[in-house]
Amino acid sequence: MKRRWWHRWLVTPGELSKLGVVGLNARNGRYLLPNNPRRLYRSVDDKVRTKELAFEMGLPTPKLYGTFSSPGELRHIGKLLDEHESFVIKPARGSGGKGVLVVTGRKGDFFLKGSGSSLTLSDVRFHADNILGGLFSLGGRRDVAMVEQFIQCSQDVMGLSYRGAPDIRVVMLHGYPVMAMLRLATKESDGRANLHQGAIGVGIDLETGLSHHAVCHGRPVEIHPDLDCPLIGQQIPQWELVLKLAALCYEMTGLGYLGADIMIGCQTGPMLIEVNARPGLAIQLANAEGLRRRFERVQEEAMRMKGSASVEERIEFSRHVLTPFAKERKEKALSSLGG
């Protein structure tokens, strides 16, 4: 599209529509509300429940070491933590990565955070107490604190992220992968992979698992601002497994529209971290492409197959039918990989 003077400040609705960008109202009204019945939210909003479901389905997720649902139980947290060198404490009903405490190791009596700072046992207990009090959950409701296995990320992607674990978000409609992005922490995002806190969103090509575009604060970037490594043309390891894991989330939860958050462990391979029933729209910016055309193609296909498509068929469709929309960009990514 030709650049006009007003594009410095805004795009017109007509242009956005031509680009196939999906807005929040459209996401809610067209994809979220019709496809995600309220009763299914329970299985993803409570992460303990998600873990149980994933275990039944045989999907790899970080091991659950224990849960704490009352301040009284927190007295025993020290004993539980002693058994593990590293762990993650997070709220069962948190959203947007709030309240996640990552402990990567020990130094004497101290716990070491991913960012390098150290905590005492009472700091950790206070954090868990805040989780129980509902500090990080929607509407301040009481919550459960979960302690789970810390996943050491594969060096292929860890090398792209500044002091924080990168994760892959795959947006799914009717069980078909629609779009994927890699989220990388920066100095500004403080180890977290939240795009609006300054993390980098990297668009991933569904067919190959190659990164082809990246944005930070909504603006395109090609090089990580803190690590100086190139962001374009990077290969996500075990890409087929990532897609399969994401696609199985549909069978697991029954949600028509979902976002699967996946981490790639260096020994364990791709692991499902959580499932999001209301995935955001920043993935469009990361891929420099609107979601709408892909959604429409998937809807046609789902209608045609009437839900009979197997996981492999769905992935096959996504990889070979959806992506040619971004063909030109893919070629660019491949060429930068060659050079």
Binding site: M1, K2, R3, R4, H7, R8, W9, L10, V11, T12, P13, E15, L16, S17, L19, V21, G23, L24, N25, A26, N28, G29, R30, V215, G218, R219, P220, Q284, L285, A288, G290
Partner: peptide
């Protein structure tokens, strides 16, 4: 409640889509 068009803020948010 049934409007599925763009919000005014999205016109700004997605401006980097055009013209690179």
């Amino acid at each position: 409640g049934r409007y599925t068009g763009y919000r005014a803020s999205e016109l700004i948010r997605f401006r980097s889509f055009v013209g690179k």
